[in-house]
Design a protein around this nucleic acid. Structure first.
Lengths: 234, 234
DNA sequence: CGTGCTTTGTGAAATCGTGCACAAGGGATC
DNA sequence: GATCCCTTGTGCACGATTTCACAAAGCACG
């Protein structure tokens, strides 16, 4: 077994796909599938088989030629590589519509990211309970982050408050941010930020819809191609 | 003025940035800024100025050398290119926690994507009213899509129901899907799909957190670099 | 134990995306 | 209208990512 050191750097594009593979592998494990080939995994993930092999090769040489990958073991390795061998509590800033939905959503607690706290600037919201968590005042952010050993913050505020939320999160010691506000954040380069923007996604779809509409004549030709593929993106 | 034809194909990476530029430009317009340079826009969007210029050049030659881009005009052009010169009603499948939050979220109605309908498979939910929309039975999907001239569907079901939701949406005539379920969809290649997955985003952040933790010694060096940048991604 | 079938792991080529650097264009000023 | 300054638009080189293609490796079966 190779040393437990930091391996060669994994390309960002690969990092973004590992969670997808992980999800699929967990499903397969639950269906009592023991082995999966790069071909099979590629099919399920909607990507090219060579890409799957190259992606997995960054983790190490965990496949067996002629056989494929052992599902359980691969799950274990991807988890380890992604840092999912322990929980990462998160703190949610903003207890509005979205913040409350996120807190109640299974996607956090069920998947290793328990809600370690929830804050809001509005005194009227403070001390109300959402999904089992009491909303605390924005000022207590440093205390909550420190007490919970929290390093990931989620911004669910309106756009206008997002930068302030980010500044406060960073001041409190958070080093990764998931930003749901439609606003580009300015942060030090040591902080990791991911942005999820509903409107952006819809506008990208709108672009493609318009494109289809404009080319509706030539689209007749393409429409014949009705074969299914996984993960049709864009 | 150039003909109103379909221009050369715009790269996906550019399409994904246009909504960001648009958002920033709208803010600038509201702040009564008339002109913006590629440098200024780049700063606000957290990207390279050359990239901004190249991205915008795909739309046409709408800048003025020595001056920059006229904000209002650029807003108009990006809107047109993205197909945002009219509304795109959407239908939401799944009226659970997430579906209801989405319906109530300003991100839809306020930005040209009004909720044209909402369906759920659970008879107990049908006919209840969420954010001004009455939940309808799943079976009425074709009727709703046809009546509303809807081409974009949003999947807010559990993972297990997502593929069925996609199949029904496509059968009803929808050609673009925004998928919030943690599940890779299998769809014909004529359908555009975008996936938003909370768990995936958090796991990517987890990877980076772990990486920071592993290299905490050498991180001391990098931490000195405390300059701010926009849109620190990943 | 050798042969054949299967699937991995990975060089190498092709494609895509980014950023530099600069010529060309436009406005302002005298 | 000539000159200067500024900023766009883009050719080009570079880096990242994807895909191909195949040798190396493991298993099964005779």
């Amino acid at each position: 077994m190779p040393p437990h050191r930091t391996r060669r750097r994994i390309p960002e594009a690969t990092v973004a796909r590992l969670p997808i593979y992980l999800q699929i592998l967990i499903e397969q494990a639950e269906a009592d599938v023991d082995n999966v080939s790069s071909e099979g995994l590629a099919e399920l993930a909607g990507v090219n088989a060579a890409k799957v092999r190259k992606d997995l090769s960054y983790l190490g040489s965990y496949g067996t030629r002629g056989v494929g990958y052992e599902v359980e073991y691969l799950v274990f390795q991807i988890r380890r590589e992604l840092g999912l061998d322990h929980e990462w509590p998160v703190v949610i800033v903003g207890a509005g519509n979205l913040g409350q939905a996120l807190a109640g959503y299974g996607g956090f607690n069920g998947r290793g990211f328990p809600v370690g706290g929830m804050v809001d600037i509005d005194p009227a919201k403070v001390d109300t309970v959402v999904a089992g968590a009491r909303i605390r005042p924005l000022e207590e952010l440093p205390k909550i982050v420190a007490a919970g050993g929290i390093s990931i913050g989620v911004i669910a505020t309106p756009a206008a408050a997002a930068q302030d939320a980010a500044d406060r999160l960073i001041a409190a010691g958070v080093t990764s941010i998931l930003n749901f506000a439609p606003m580009v954040l300015s942060v030090p380069s040591t902080i990791s930020v991911r942005k999820v923007d509903l409107a952006v996604e819809l506008q990208i779809l709108s672009y493609h819809e318009q494109r289809k509409a404009n080319n509706s004549h030539s689209a007749q030709l393409h429409a014949v191609n009705d074969e299914r593929r996984r993960g049709a993106s864009a």
